[in-house]
Every structure is written in C-alpha cells, then in structure tokens.
Design a binder for these strands. Structure first.
Length: 599
RNA sequence: GCCCCCAUCGUCUAGCGGUCUAGGACGCCGGCCUCUCACGCCGGAAACAGGGGUUCGAGUCCCCUUGGGGGCGCCA
C-alpha cells in the first residue's frame, strides 16, 4: 500500500524565510531527561560542548566498573575524550582521548551533582531491524548489545521494525525476527513499532524542515543522479549530489516529480562522539544533501530514524558501524530540528572466517539455523557477547554476569571473525554446566526444531519421552550424555539408543565390532547376565570384569561388543552405567539379538 | 576514486608508557586418565604488520607505508 501522498503545497515552499525556528514537538515519550539537558549543573552540561574534548558523561550503576577509579592526576595528562561517572562514586577514563580540559572538569565535578543530574535519565535503547530477511547473526548481536546495555543500566530496549521499504519488507521476516529474539530471550518493552505506520508523523517533520528552510525540493531524476555519479567517479571526485536544485526554489506542483532534500551545511565539520568509535569527524562538504522524501511522498530511512528515535525517547543508539556515516547525516537533522542527539555507539561488524563481511556463504544464517544446529540460547548469548567485547580473561558468562559486566567501553573497534569451533566449545560448556532441568527443557523445546536429517529421530524421541520409564532412563543418563555432547543435536544422537526400538540397527563401526568372535563372546556372557540377581551398576560391572578375567580378555574386548549390542554404536557413556540405567529385559534382549545373530 | 574506521598467536582477546623473556580461551600437537567417546589434568608450538619519530623507557603515544573493513541510493 503506497504512502499517503503528502500535501506538497502545504508549508515551507517558496523561499523560506529561514526562520530557523526549532520546531520541537514534545510527545510524552520524549519526556526523558538528557544527560546534557536541563536540570544538570552547568559544569556538567558544558562538558558536552568542550571545543575539542567532547566529554561524554554517562551513568552506570555503582559497582559495575571493573576498574576502580584511577586518580585524577593520571587521567589529566592522558587526554580523555570520554569519561564515565559511576553513580557519583567513581569515574573512569575511556579510549581515544583528546582533550585534557574536559577531564579536569570531570575530576573537579562534584560526584553528588553528577548523580543528581544523570540519575534522571533512564536508558532506552532500540533494536531496529529491517524485515527483509531472517534475523541474521550480526543483527542478533546488535540486539544483544542493545539489550545488555539497557539491562545493565536499568533501562529498556525497544523494538522497531524498519519496514518503510514496502517492496522488500515481508510479514514472514517480521515473524522470523521476533521468533529469533524470543529464542535468544532478548525481550523488548512494549509492542514492536512499525516505522511505516508512523509515516504521517515523518511527513509532518519534513514539512517542518521545509518551513524552517532546512530542506528544499529537488527535481533531479534517478537517471540524472546516476549520470552525475558516473561523471564524478570518472573525474575522481566524491560521488555526492552536486546540490544543483538547492537554490532553485522549486515548489510543487511542478512539471517533474519532486523529492525533498535536506539542506546540509556546506562548510564546517560534523563531529560524532561515538561511545565505541570515539570522535569521528567529517568535513561538511563530504556529506551531501540527502533525500528526506521520495517522489512518491514516502519518507526515507535517515529522516524516519531520527524522528522515531526522538519520539521514542531513545537515549542510546547502538548499531553496526555500517551506519556510521548515517550518524553524521542524522546528527545534522537532529540539529536542524533543534532536538537532542542521542548517544551513539557503532559496533564493529562480524566477519566471516575469511575476513570478509559475513554473508550467506559463511555463517550469516538466520538465528533459527543456529537453533536447528542445537545451540543453546545461553551459549549463543555468551559467544556473541564475547565477539568484540571482553571482560578481562573471562570466557564464560552467565546472563546475569553479562548484564552486570557489559558496557560499551569494553567493546573493541576492530571487526571479529565468526568462529564455529569456538561457538561449539562455548556451547559444550553450557551443555555440561547448565542446570539439569534447564537442559531437559531446552532439549524438549528443541526437538520440534531439529534439522531435516534428524527430524524423524527427534519426533520419535519426543514421543518416547512421554513414556515415564523412557524418560527415567534419559534423565538417569543425562549427566553422562551431556558431557559428550557439544550440541543438542549430538545429545539426541548420543541418546538415540534410549529411544530406539529393537532390533537395533548398529552403525557401521558397531557392526565392525560385532564380528563372529564377539558375538560368540556375547553368547557366553548372556546367561550370566540373565542369572544376575541385582541389576545395578556395581553388580553388572563386577560380573563383567570377572567374566573378562576368566576368559583372559581385556575389558575392552568385552565392553566394546556389549556397547555395540546395547547401544548400536561404538560410542556411548560408560557401558555399565548404560546397562544399569536401562530396563534389564531390554538390555538382555538387545544382547540376545546380537548373540544369536552369530549362530 | 573519495570519505571514515581498524591492525597483538590461525581465531576471539588481555594489555590503558616500565610489572611483557606479551597473559587467557578456542583450535592444533604430545602425554596422563580410560571399557569407547568425551570430560578432566599436564606439557608444547603459535602473535605485538613494516618504517620513522616522541620518551630515560613503546605492544602501549604521534606520523607514514602496507594490509583489511565500512560508507558513498528516491535501501535500510
């Protein structure tokens, strides 16, 4: 459904008188306190505007810093760009430091004032994916960082679906994203917000920009623009719009379709103080007059994002570095509108094993693919958090620890490669160490999502698990099984003998073990097992060890054929444990199946 | 091409001027344990991209080179 055609004639056309009235529209949602906003002691506010320093003051709960406060004198000589105040208790210097004055001021600021000022702001982050495909791993990490940051600071994450591209946005993608976030247990506050649904508001803001002389109509066609870019490229000039319509004073109705462009400053520089990237500056001329409204009247991304982030009261924008230049463009729009610019944090992208941007070729699968592969949400969070973020030498983090320790200052600037081997290792740790009940639940949740090749087994396991006695065996052996499984898939494979029905189909290696002499050995052993009174691990083990000794066989020569017969595999938990956990009749029958097979 | 960012073992990283003969983890190799496979334990190989500065002193600060990445849409 196409956008509501805006009333081009309304407002702002014809040589705007450059009133430059900051049209600040306050909705309830924007009633957030800004760290630099009103109510702060003047000393603090001015720090944001230090000519070179741009000291950023943020609040984080007491005790959340891993480093305790360094003495002011050390920092002063170090040219800090960013500093953090911890609930007025301590302060800490961040990276890329470039001005000594700001730091001194921090050092001199009264902690009590800082607390009063900063406590007023509640952290609101947002995850804003465009629903043009599944939730890929990079998006998942962005969501995780937003979520952790918000949680860490006692705030909330919001979810906004950037569905303004009507051609590419799909309902399935929205569902995939929501499913993915839910699987990872990254909850957001309130309902997901559709950016498309806010179109009227966006158009209203465009009108404001037109009226205040910060935007203008442009008649250039896509073809002309493409030609301009070609030409610029050939001449080695930057491929930016040449602003030819800027002073034309075009106005609808017009004989050609018109778009609205932002009237970006022609000189000076745009400076972003990014919480991860540090200070990044652009010459204003490097940024062109971006389109705010398409010829069909629909608003573009950069405009919509600014309006939505503002209206939603977002305090911290955390997204991939691929948005860094957008940050500069967006900052210009904020300023034209007279709005507070939220804090920005542009996190490095995840790369594939070959160092190139992660693509479908690599691991850029949807998160549901990782669920299928049998990874645990807690392991996923753990691994993803460690990709680009660190906390000393720690590798394993519970979600609580993640929330307690996560902050943007420990996020690096360089891209990280996605490494399946490490993910698997982390997942293995969680398989072994997660609470038993939790693992049982995860396994049950996962079964319906098993990959194609395991679908049948998973379904059978699901059904058999409903049988209390089968479940009993599974639970008894769970600790032995989980130790050997790096993923839920492997857990199913390893525990398959519990759910399998007689006669078992031994795998290739098990068949190799079950040669004639092994079958004969089993035939000799069987009656003794049948005669065994007590069916417990110690009794079984004692009997078999005695048998092996008597036959002058190494224990392995008895244990392996037994394992093959009972589990149908060459790999399993300790065979005595397995036999003891399984029903006696079933075990004896399975052995008999293979023993008689020899005859 | 232009703008921006990045650069410690194969990979993820610790390191915020002296404590670095550079630490941890994954992976790899060897060993122990052992009924298989894992787990666990012990040991090993493995890195400050190159060049200039600054400094008494540089992996740590600055510059250049090289190499990687991102951006340059009426996509988001």
């Amino acid at each position: 459904m196409p956008a509501t055609a805006p009333n081009h004639g309304a407002g702002g056309c014809g040589k705007a008188n450059h009133r430059n009235t900051p049209a600040v529209s306050h909705t309830a949602a924007q009633a957030r306190a800004s760290p630099s906003g009103g109510g702060c002691p003047s000393g603090w506010r001015s720090q944001r505007n230090t000519a070179r320093g741009h000291v950023v003051v943020r609040f984080s709960p007491i005790g959340s810093r891993k480093h305790q406060l360094p003495p002011p004198a050390q920092i002063r000589g170090r040219r800090c760009q960013q500093a953090v105040v911890n609930g007025g208790k301590s302060w800490h210097c961040l990276r890329n430091i470039s001005d000594a004055h700001g730091i001194q001021r921090i050092a001199h600021a009264a902690p009590d004032n800082a607390r009063t000022c900063i406590m007023a702001s509640k952290v609101i982050t947002r995850f804003a994916p465009s629903p043009t495909g599944f939730l890929h791993i990079g998006g998942a990490r962005t969501a995780l960082f937003n979520w952790l940051f918000a949680k860490h600071h006692g705030g909330e994450m919001l979810l906004r679906i950037e569905d303004t591209d009507r051609q590419r946005s799909t309902e399935e993608a929205v569902n995939a994203i929501i499913d993915g976030l839910q699987w990872l247990e990254l909850e957001w506050a309130g309902e997901p917000i559709s950016q498309f649904s806010r179109q009227e508001r966006h158009v209203e803001v465009i009108r404001q920009l037109l009226e205040s002389g910060h935007a203008y109509y442009c008649q250039c066609t896509p073809e002309e623009l493409a030609a301009m870019r070609e030409k610029a490229k050939a001449e080695g000039r930057p491929m930016t719009y040449d602003r030819r319509c800027r002073e034309l004073g075009l106005c609808p109705p017009h004989d050609r379709p018109l778009v609205v462009r932002f009237k970006a400053p022609r000189e000076g520089e745009i400076v972003i103080n990014d919480l991860v990237q540090g200070e990044v500056r652009w010459q204003a001329q490097a940024l062109d007059d971006l389109v705010l409204m398409r010829a069909d009247g629909t608003p573009t991304y950069n405009l919509a994002v600014v309006v939505d982030d503002h209206d939603m009261g977002i305090t911290h924008v955390i997204r991939g570095v691929d948005h860094l230049t957008n940050a500069a463009r967006q900052k210009m729009i904020y300023e034209a509108l007279g709005w507070d610019v939220p804090e920005m944090a542009h996190i490095p992208l995840i790369h594939g094993p070959d160092g190139a941007k992660l693509s479908k070729r690599h691991g850029a699968l949807g998160v549901e693919a990782y669920r299928e592969m049998g990874y645990l949400p807690e392991a996923m969070r753990n691994y993803l958090a460690r990709l680009g973020w660190s906390h000393g030498d720690d590798e394993i983090f519970s979600t609580e620890q993640l929330i307690e320790w996560f902050d943007l200052d420990a996020v690096g600037k360089s891209p990280a490669r996605f490494d399946f081997a490490k993910l698997e290792s982390v997942n293995g740790w969680w398989m072994r160490n997660i609470e038993r009940e939790k693992l049982l639940a995860r396994f049950g949740e996962w079964l319906p999502h098993a990959p194609e090749e395991l679908r049948e087994k998973a379904e059978q396991a699901r059904q058999r698990l409903a049988d209390a006695s089968v479940r009993q065996v599974f639970e008894t052996l769970l600790d032995d099984l989980r130790e050997r499984a790096k993923t839920l898939n492997e857990l199913l494979e390893l525990s398959w003998f519990i759910f399998a029905e007689r006669p078992l189909q031994p795998n290739a290696k098990a068949r190799k073990i079950l040669k004639d002499d092994a079958r004969a050995m089993l035939a000799a052993l069987l009656p003794r097992l049948q005669a065994l009174d007590a069916w417990d691990k110690d009794a079984i083990e004692a009997l078999i060890r005695a048998f092996a000794e008597e036959q002058e066989l190494k224990l392995g020569k008895v244990a392996q054929p037994l394992r093959a017969a009972v589990t149908g595999s060459n790999v399993s938990p300790g065979i005595f444990e397995v036999m003891a956990a399984m029903p006696r009749d079933e075990v004896l029958a399975r052995i008999a199946d293979q023993a008689t097979g020899a005859a």
